[in-house]
């Protein structure tokens, strides 16, 4: 009997699916918060990749875990910064549509 959880490829395919889910959500949502939520999926796919390679291939099993923890910290910092940026953009432009925020184009 083949156990799915014992194969590296299963985890890699899950990570690919999460990455593309994030990309699709990023394209589909037209609000800043929707795009932030989708970017979390991309980061989650990256950390699953690190953990999978850590479990099956890496010589030192602490490296992947520390990298995944690092990605979690980056994601938390990114979420805090993006939420405050969204508030600032709303106060300045009075809109939540990313297509309306185009000061640098002029």
């Amino acid at each position: 009997m083949i156990f799915l959880s014992d194969h590296l490829e299963t985890y890699l395919v899950i990570a690919v699916l999460l990455l593309l889910l994030g990309v699709y959500g990023m394209v589909r949502h037209k609000t800043f918060i929707g795009m932030l939520i989708s970017s979390e999926f991309i980061l989650a796919g990256a950390s699953i990749n690190f953990m999978a390679f850590n479990r099956f291939l890496a010589p030192n099993p602490a490296v992947g875990q520390i990298f995944a923890l690092f990605i979690m910290g980056i994601a938390a910092a990114e979420a805090a910064i993006v939420v405050s940026l969204i508030l600032m953009v709303y106060h300045r432009f009075r809109t939540v549509d990313p297509a309306q925020v185009h000061d640098l184009q002029h």
């Binding site: 979420a79 969204i86 939540v96």
Partner: peptide, 12 residues
């Protein structure tokens, strides 16, 4: 954080 961002943020 995201839920708070939605609550205190602009109306969609």
């Amino acid at each position: 954080i995201i839920a708070f961002g939605i609550m205190v943020g602009p109306k969609p």
